[in-house]
Every structure is written in structure tokens, then in C-alpha cells.
């Protein structure tokens, strides 16, 4: 087990490093000198010397390799450089934006899992084929809906038509309801699909009729036997979609005008603020790697067969 954890940690660290490097190459090296692009604008009226000083301030006057090393070391120490747009440390901007997004993404994820579980188990329990078919069609519909459009639609229906949620003002909770729903729907879809499929597969396994032959009801079988077996593939997908939460928050926060990591990302792209973008990409990759690491470690706990292999 210790060896497995060690190997898995090394792998996670590698992916994180590689994601940083790829993003660094794409964002810092290839576009050329982003500081020059921004400050050479004649409207600013800066002299070449002033520009030179600004470059030195941002650390732009060193060789690419040196600057890569500095940036990497900075990231390892928790310093992400300075925003080109506002000149403030990227860390500060991230720290400002993170709590709101964490609340949004966290609740969105929980709601998504709840929706997925309800759909998948209802479909797994249902014997009426049209009900089952209808339930199983829901996830396909969910993945086909553009997130931004869903958000707009919800605002239209709940705020403008029904007047249930105020467009401006309202309590923090009221402001959270629609964005969370918007974010949860596309995340719920893949989890529900995989969970439903894996419930079907487990229900077709040979041990299910054996449990039934003991005198167990369908619900008992589904809940006490099938659920835990079916959870594993769904857990994997849930881990993978966790990364999509940050992407989803970009759209959701834009549509609902909320502040957070997503909004920050949008501003960074508009302003070509590459240090901020780099930090966001690495943050997303880190969340993804950590969550999937946790999922992998959780696997043997849920499935005793994996304990021997990893031990």
C-alpha cells in the first residue's frame, strides 16, 4: 500500500508539473512578450526606459529558461507572480475569488450527485419500460443543453416570469439557487449516465439472482448489493467531472454576474493577463489531480478485491 501511494503521488506530481509546463509554454513563451504588447501601446506614452523598468518589475528581462525556473519556483512557494492587468499579486486576486467559487462549485457538485443518484436509482428500480426510458433520456438531454443558455432560461422563468428569485438584490442564498442549479445540470448528466449503466451491468451479474433466491426484495438488492458495486465507475466519472466545475463556473459566473474564479478567468482572457490565466489553469489541474488521487485511494476501501493488488 505504501509503495502504491508513493508511486501514485509521484505520478500526480508529474502530471501537475507537466500541466504547469504546457500551460507555461502556451501562455508565456509562445505569445512573445505580453508586457511589451500591453505597455508599448503609444497611447500610454511610456518611454523605452520606463518599459524596461516595468519589464524588470514583472521579471520579463531574463532568458526564457531562467524565467521558467523562477516562475516554477514561485509556484512551488505559493507565489504566482503579478497580474499584468491590475499589477496586484495573482495570489491576492485568487484568494479574493476563491471562496465564492468554492461555495458555488461545492453546492453545485453536491446537487449534481443528488440528481444523478435519484435518476439512476429510479431508473434501476423501475420496471415500467417507458418510465425507465424517460428517466434514462434525462441525462442525454442534460448534456445537450448549453450551460449559459440554461442559466438565461432559469433567470427568465424564475426571475422574470414567476418572480420567485429577485434579479438584483435578494439574500445570499437566493442568489445562489439558480447558479447552483445551472452548474449542477451538466455535471449531473455524465454521473447519472455512468451510474445508470453500471447499475444495469451489476444487476445482470450472477450474484443478483442468488440474493433474490435468499428472499430479498428488489429494493433490498438494489440498495444493499448493487449500489456499492455500481458506485465505483460513477466515482471515477465524478472525479473527472470535478475539473469541469471550474470550467462551468466561468460560464455560470458570467451569466449571473457573480464574482469568483470564473469571472477572474474571463477577465484574464479579455486582458491577455497570462500570469492570472496560468495560475487558474494550474489551480484547475491541481484540483483535478488531487480529487482523482483521492478517488484512487478510496477505491480499495470500497472494493476489497483491489486491496490485494495495491498492497
Amino acid at each position: 500500500m505504501a509503495r502504491y501511494l508513493l508511486r501514485r503521488t509521484a505520478q500526480a506530481a508529474f502530471v501537475l508539473w507537466a500541466a504547469f509546463t504546457v500551460a507555461y509554454v502556451l501562455l508565456q513563451l509562445l505569445p512573445g512578450d505580453s508586457i511589451l504588447i500591453k505597455f508599448q501601446n503609444p497611447e500610454l506614452g511610456l518611454s523605452p526606459r520606463q518599459i524596461q523598468e516595468i519589464r524588470a518589475y514583472y521579471g520579463g528581462d531574463v532568458s526564457p529558461l531562467e524565467s521558467y525556473a523562477t516562475t516554477l519556483l514561485g509556484f512551488l512557494r505559493g507565489g504566482f507572480g503579478y497580474s499584468i492587468d491590475t499589477g496586484t499579486p495573482v495570489v491576492e486576486r485568487l484568494a479574493e475569488a476563491l471562496p465564492a467559487t468554492a461555495v458555488l462549485a461545492g453546492s453545485g457538485f453536491l446537487l449534481a450527485v443528488l440528481i444523478a443518484v435519484v435518476i439512476a436509482f429510479a431508473a434501476g428500480h423501475s420496471r415500467t419500460s417507458w418510465i425507465r426510458g424517460a428517466l434514462l433520456a434525462v441525462p442525454s438531454l442534460f448534456v445537450s443543453v448549453p450551460v449559459f443558455w440554461l442559466g438565461i432560461l432559469l433567470i427568465q422563468v424564475f426571475s422574470f416570469r414567476l418572480g420567485l428569485v429577485p434579479v438584483i438584490g435578494g439574500s445570499a442564498l437566493q442568489q445562489l439557487v439558480l447558479p447552483v442549479l445551472t452548474l449542477a445540470v451538466p455535471i449531473a448528466a455524465p454521473i447519472a449516465q455512468v451510474l445508470a449503466r453500471s447499475i444495469d451491468r451489476v444487476q445482470a451479474q450472477a450474484f443478483v439472482p442468488v440474493v433474490a433466491a435468499k428472499g430479498a426484495s428488489r429494493w433490498w438488492i438494489l440498495w444493499r448489493h448493487v449500489a456499492r458495486n455500481a458506485a465505483l465507475p460513477a466515482l471515477t466519472v465524478a472525479g473527472v467531472t470535478f475539473g469541469e466545475l471550474i470550467a462551468g463556473s466561468v460560464v455560470t459566473e458570467t451569466v449571473f454576474g457573480r464574482n469568483g474564479i470564473g469571472r477572474l478567468t474571463e477577465q484574464a482572457v479579455n486582458a491577455q493577463d497570462t500570469p492570472v490565466m496560468l495560475a487558474v489553469v494550474v489551480l484547475a489541474a491541481a484540483v483535478f489531480v488531487l480529487v482523482n488521487f483521492a478517488v484512487d485511494v478510496l477505491f480499495p476501501v470500497l472494493d476489497p478485491r483491489l486491496r490485494a493488488v495495491t498492497g
Partner: peptide, 15 residues
């Protein structure tokens, strides 16, 4: 009525 199934490899819940 008791049942002794066909395939012992897959007839018990693995978890």
C-alpha cells in the same frame, strides 16, 4: 426453496 447457482466465481457479491 433454496438455490445452488451455476457459477461460483460470480455468484457472491464481491464487496
Amino acid at each position: 426453496i433454496g438455490l445452488v447457482p451455476q457459477d461460483p466465481a460470480n455468484s457472491l457479491n464481491p464487496v
